[in-house]
Design a protein around this nucleic acid. Structure first.
Length: 716
DNA sequence: TCAGCGCATGTTTTT
DNA sequence: CATGCGCTGA
């Protein structure tokens, strides 16, 4: 075990081998924070300071918890599966599954995402006869989440103040009742429920306090007040808490994160040892010094100055583009030059403030035949057609799930419109029953018009006929039957556009996804339930594409935690970055600056900063001033790039190597068959392994790019 | 009941 | 510019 300590610097070693007690690790960008966390766990286990059973490690994203588990597997002599590692939400979910009755929940409770939550709130507004213009559903949604994060139930809120507050509380009250009645739990509810469970059932809390001797929390600057309270509650007298975070990388204040929690920790826990990790192993001196200079403009920092033993490196390139197209062409030219000099595309990232910027960049890279990958945007499981499938599945699992019912009852359109639905809603409300039960009742009472009655009967028959299949065949086959039976497939096939085709393909991919789904080992849930909850909690953000050589494009926010040899930060203009909506509040501006710091510190070797004199946003062009952040970078680190006129001088021909290197077994010109699109010819191949993509021209459906590991392609 | 048209609107995102 | 939402007419 000694050799795993060898790889640590003195500060890291101090954190990993810290004496019993609470520990605060202020870890700067690129200072090895994940390493410290995993090594600390390994050290605790090796020295028998803790048993695997007694460790709880909490992260914010599924990606982070997967990574932590993987890295632990490498240094632990045994499997890591006995450790509780997960996101706040997945751990809360697990606890609620174990103690659902004591938490006042039905066994088959469902988690809803913010989209479902939004629909639910709109339904309530309609029910309460509230005008959406006057009371925007988004605002109510925000209000409810904010209250839950403060630990406040509707009845506990002082609503005497003003009419606005009274209305919000009224909505909140109705929302609470509806969720409870439908066995639905939203994201903030997961945490709040557990919080209340522990408060109301002291013996359960005592059990977990005794169990967890060590709690470790990553990215502590991102915790909101409920999460802070949660850890505080769970940490018993003998629990040792270790938190890791960086106040300079707090970029989620706008969604409730309280970076102050980092400072509160030392105040609220006795005898906290603080360790600062200030040696950076990622960036050149130039990049690091420049980033330090920018972040130094912020006040109220906990104080940390990163340093590196690395080389000085190249200066940071600054380019003032004429407009966003010129900016994109400059970036493309730099990427092509870097590629010719031996860089891989996957070593290069383009970061931007807002998603809208990706369009022009994407088009420009496409013209230059540079493969790229855009992160963010709608994730697979968030797409409407996939959520329809999940809706059906939820209804099969629990017919009283009104959210699911509303989603799919008329999708595809089957003649059950607003009027019929409103009748059902009224009936359900009067009788205090679910919409499904209201259907049954209406069927008996014969209160519906004959037309609607037939449609409802057909719909109910469909669901009833699919239900028994869940116990008799694999999930993917149930889904297949469902997609056919419900007419989803036929519905989307009617749309012959690019979009319609994509939807049909997504449905097919979803079936493959279901086939490959494996429940976690320690899951006691029925398979469908496990599938449904994982689909909500883990929206399937793909791992940073293995083996796929593509330029990585993403927002500055989603770049946190990543690193790339070469980084472009585009659109450094006042109004865009810092964003005009954040520029007014002082806090907002400080957060934008931290975002800039996060972006700069992603770069290992070479950083490019670009801005445009004019940029057309939503149609009309406007003149832009360079971002104030550029002025905060000391000039000695900058090198102004000259504007060139002929960026198109670089060859735009596709390099032939891409065509050779594939292990797919398919070759150009080959005839293939796809279950949906029929026969076609292979036009192009790229990527390797499970990321291999083929372009096929189908006889009837045009040409498409397909991921081989998803698409069921056969050779003909 | 639903498709199609016109109008307003326009950060960042995870669970 | 482009998308999404609400309203209107068939």
């Amino acid at each position: 075990m000694e050799n795993f300590l060898d790889e640590l610097n003195p500060e890291q070693l101090a954190a990993v081998t810290a004496a019993p007690g609470h520990l605060l690790v202020l870890a700067g960008a690129g200072s090895g924070k994940t390493r410290v966390l995993t090594h600390r766990i390994a050290w605790l286990l090796e020295t028998h300071a803790a048993s695997a059973h007694g460790i709880l490690a909490v992260t914010f994203t599924n990606k982070a918890s997967h990574e932590m588990r993987q890295r632990l597997e490498k240094i632990l002599p045994f499997e890591s599966r006995h450790l509780w590692i997960g996101t706040f939400h997945s751990i809360a979910h697990r606890l609620l599954r174990l103690h659902y009755a004591k938490a006042q929940l039905a066994e088959n409770f469902q988690i809803i995402d913010s989209d479902d939550q939004y629909r639910l709130i709109r339904r309530i507004l309609a029910q309460l006869n509230l005008d959406e213009k006057q009371f925007p559903p988004r605002q109510a949604q925000w209000f409810i989440s904010a209250q839950k994060e403060k630990g406040l139930r509707a009845h506990a809120i002082d609503d005497e103040r003003d009419a606005f507050m009274r209305t919000q509380v009224k909505i909140y009250t109705a929302y609470e009742a509806l969720c409870q009645q439908n066995h639905l739990v939203d994201f903030s509810e997961l945490l709040l429920r557990v919080h209340e469970l522990w408060r109301n059932e002291p013996e359960i809390l005592a059990h977990y306090r005794a169990r967890f001797s060590h709690i470790l929390v990553d990215e502590f600057q991102d915790t909101n007040s409920m999460q802070y309270a949660w850890i505080r509650q769970l940490a018993g007298e003998h629990t040792q808490v270790m938190i890791v975070g960086d106040d300079d990388q707090s970029i989620y204040g706008w969604r409730g994160a309280q970076a102050e929690n980092l400072a509160h920790f030392s105040r609220d826990y006795p005898n906290v040892t603080t360790v600062r990790l200030e040696q950076n192993y990622r960036s050149t001196k130039t990049i690091l010094n420049a980033a330090n200079a920018v972040i130094a403009q912020n006040s109220d920092r906990l104080g940390k100055e990163l340093w590196t033993e690395g080389e000085t490196g190249e200066p940071i390139s600054l380019y003032e583009a004429f407009d966003e197209h010129d900016e994109a062409r400059f970036i493309r030219a730099c990427i092509q030059r870097a590629f010719d000099q031996g860089y891989s595309y996957k070593d290069i990232a383009i970061l931007y403030r807002s998603n809208a910027q990706s369009r022009v960049l994407e088009e420009t890279l496409l013209e230059g035949n540079i493969s790229y990958r855009i992160y963010g945007g709608l994730r697979f499981l968030d797409r409407a057609e996939i959520k329809d499938c999940l809706g059906y599945l939820r209804l099969l699992y629990n017919t009283d799930d009104d959210t699911a019912f509303e989603r799919v009852v008329n999708q595809p359109p089957r003649g059950i419109g607003d009027k019929t639905l409103q009748q059902l809603r009224d009936l359900a409300r009067e009788e205090k029953i679910s919409l499904w039960q209201a259907c049954e009742k209406a069927r008996l009472n014969k209160t519906l018009t004959p037309r609607a009655a037939t449609s409802i009967a057909e719909f109910m028959n469909l669901i009833e006929s699919l239900k028994p299949l869940m116990n008799s065949m694999p999930l993917d086959q149930v889904l297949d039957k469902m997609i056919q039976g419900a007419g989803l497939q036929a519905h989307y096939q009617k749309d012959r556009s690019e979009k319609g085709l994509a939807k049909v393909e997504n449905l097919a991919e979803f079936i493959v996804f279901a086939r490959e789904f494996k429940a976690e080992e320690n899951s006691e849930l029925p398979l469908v339930a496990a599938f449904l909850s994982q689909a909500v909690l883990d929206s399937g953000e793909k791992e940073a594409a293995l083996g796929e050589d593509a330029v990585q494009m993403m927002t500055l926010h989603s770049a946190k935690g990543l690193e790339f040899p070469m980084v472009f930060m585009a659109g450094l203009e006042e109004g865009l970055f810092p964003h005009y909506l954040s520029a007014n509040e002082a806090d907002g501006l400080a957060e934008e600056r931290r975002l800039c710091y996060v972006g700069m510190t992603r770069a290992m070797k070479k950083l490019y900063l670009t801005h445009a004199q004019s940029r057309s946003l939503h149609g009309s062009g406007s003149l832009k001033q360079r971002s104030r952040f550029l002025a905060e970078v000391p000039e000695e680190y900058l090198q102004q790039e000259r504007r060139q006129t002929k960026f198109s001088a670089y060859p735009t021909q596709r390099s032939p190597t891409r065509l050779q290197a594939n292990t797919s077994g398919f070759s150009l010109g080959q005839t293939v068959r796809h279950p949906l699109f029929g026969e076609g010819t292979v036009l192009d191949l790229e990527g390797q392994g499970e990321h291999t993509r083929v372009q096929v021209r189908f006889k009837h459906s045009g040409s498409k790019w397909l991921v081989l590991s998803f698409a069921k392609l056969e050779k003909v």
